[in-house]
Write a protein that binds this DNA or RNA. Structure first.
Length: 456
DNA sequence: AACGCCACTCGTGGTACCGG
DNA sequence: CCGGTACCACGAGTGGCGTT
């Protein structure tokens, strides 16, 4: 009975859609039972049938929704699995991150020249700037105009007390323009003197810098090797105590932070609360709550203690800072001494380099002189047979295939020469022999001539 | 005057401090 | 894991100084 009411229930995707439609139809057709009441019993059987089919349909519907639910469950499960794997991945990443962070703590007792150079560059710049401020000879000299301005400023200000900076500048500018060359001369001279001194200082610094760079370059290799060694050691150690928590190394002498009023209170309450078997977290929560509700009057004693703590902390901190500064100062001095030593070493190196450079230069110069000393009139050696062939062939080849590069052309010539028959070679050999004869005659004549000039 | 550089300030976010 | 506080590092913004 019910089977014919159901068109095709077993397949899923399409049916589920149909099921929905059917459901809607069902919802839309409720008047039948209502009308049943009003109408006679003769349609009762019909109603029963209808209800049965309805029931059947609902059953199917239920099955389908159950199936749908199952599918949903499946999807959810998959999602959960995905999340879990993602969590695992995150955990992995965390571990990696921790490793990386650990790597950050790699503190070799030296720095490689690369990093060093960038570091020292920044440091040097800073130091240089500070130096400029500290000692006047490294300061860029003021121009003659500025020097003159310094002299004239107060005077102009006296004459024009109302004038502000801009106006005073304008007056000075006008005055300077009207000044004769002679009046400007002393300032110009002063500027030149200062400039000269400044340039010397700069040149010296530049030279020292160069020398230091040389030294650095030289040390780079050695440093790199040692650094590599240290790094490898570090990696090994890092892997060994990877499980151990790695906290920053702290200065044990540094005074500890003062305990706040709340912490004083919490510490006092802790013992009692722990006796009540409260957990750590509970204790924290309870003390926090209690502290919030505590009146100012009751808080006062704890605050007093905290205040005292802070005072002693500040005192200790001051003392600590002082000793630290002293340490830093002595260390700085040491470093400066070392730098001096390095500088000397570097300068020596530079001298050595300059010496060798000079030697090379000299050698080159003497070679050049030798060449220059050679009489340009002295007959030149004649071209060989291959040279003559090459000249001809090169011309031909470049005409035949323009754009071919020289190296290829030369290679081709060489090949062709090797493939050349004896007869063909003989042509070039003959030409070369003739040239050689002519050359010999020229040399004879030249020798006679030079002998005559030198004897006279 | 115009420009670059430097020191300083301020706000913000992060962290250490204590206890088990 | 919790509380309040102080400190630190860092970036952005700003005023002032030095140089041309």
């Amino acid at each position: 009975m019910a089977t014919n009411a159901d068109p095709a229930p077993t397949k899923k995707p399409r049916n589920s859609r149909k099921a929905l439609k059917q459901k809607n139809e069902l919802v839309e057709t409720p008047p039948s039972p209502v009308s049943v009441k009003g109408k006679s019993a003769k349609s009762f059987e019909q109603d029963l049938m209808e209800m049965q089919t309805m029931l059947e349909k609902m059953k199917i519907e239920k099955d389908k929704t159950e199936e749908l639910l199952k599918e949903k469950d499946e999807i959810l499960r998959k999602k959960e699995e995905e999340l879990e794997t993602r969590d695992a991945e995150q955990e992995k990443l965390k571990v990696e991150l921790k490793k990386l962070q650990k790597m950050k703590e790699f503190k070799p007792n030296m720095t490689f020249a690369c990093g060093q150079s960038s570091l020292t560059q920044a440091e040097q710049e800073k130091a240089n700037k500070k130096k400029k401020k500290d000692c006047p000879e490294t300061k860029r000299p003021s121009s003659s105009y500025v020097l003159w301005c310094k002299d004239q400023w107060t005077e102009v200000k006296k004459e024009n007390p109302e004038a502000d900076f801009k106006e005073t500048s304008n007056i000075l500018g006008a005055k300077w323009k009207s000044l004769s060359a002679e009046d400007k001369k002393p300032y110009e001279e002063r500027y030149q003197v200062e400039k000269e001194a400044y340039l010397q200082v700069i040149a010296k610094e530049k030279r020292e810098k160069e020398a230091m760079k040389l030294l650095e370059d030289d040390q780079k290799q050695r440093t790199a090797m040692e650094l590599l060694d240290q790094y490898l050691n570090f990696v090994q150690e890092a892997e060994q105590d990877n499980k151990k928590k790695n906290k920053k190394e702290k200065d044990p002498l540094k005074p500890k932070h003062p305990v706040s009023a709340f912490l004083v209170y919490a510490n006092e309450r802790r013992a009692a609360l722990r006796e009540e078997n409260k957990s750590v977290v509970e204790v924290a929560k309870i003390t926090g709550e209690e502290w919030k509700n505590l009146s100012d009057k009751k808080k006062a004693p704890y605050e007093k203690v905290a205040k005292k703590n802070k005072e002693t902390y500040l005192q200790a901190m001051e003392e600590y800072k002082r000793t630290k500064e002293e340490e830093a100062l002595s260390q700085k001095k040491e470093e400066e001494e070392l730098l001096k030593l390095h500088k000397q070493e570097a300068l020596q190196m530079l001298k050595k380099k300059e010496k060798t450079d000079n030697l090379i230069k000299k050698e080159k110069a003497t070679k050049k002189k030798k060449n220059e000393n050679v009489d340009p009139n002295k007959p030149k050696k004649p071209a060989s047979s291959y040279f003559l062939f090459s000249k001809d062939e090169r011309k031909k080849l470049t005409e035949e295939r323009p754009g071919t590069n020289n190296a290829t052309v030369t290679a081709l010539i060489s090949l062709k020469w090797k493939e050349l028959s004896e007869e063909e070679k003989q042509v070039y050999n003959g030409k070369a022999a003739k040239l050689m004869e002519a050359y010999k005659k020229e040399v004879e004549a030249y020798n006679k001539k030079s002998a005559a000039t030198t004897s006279s």
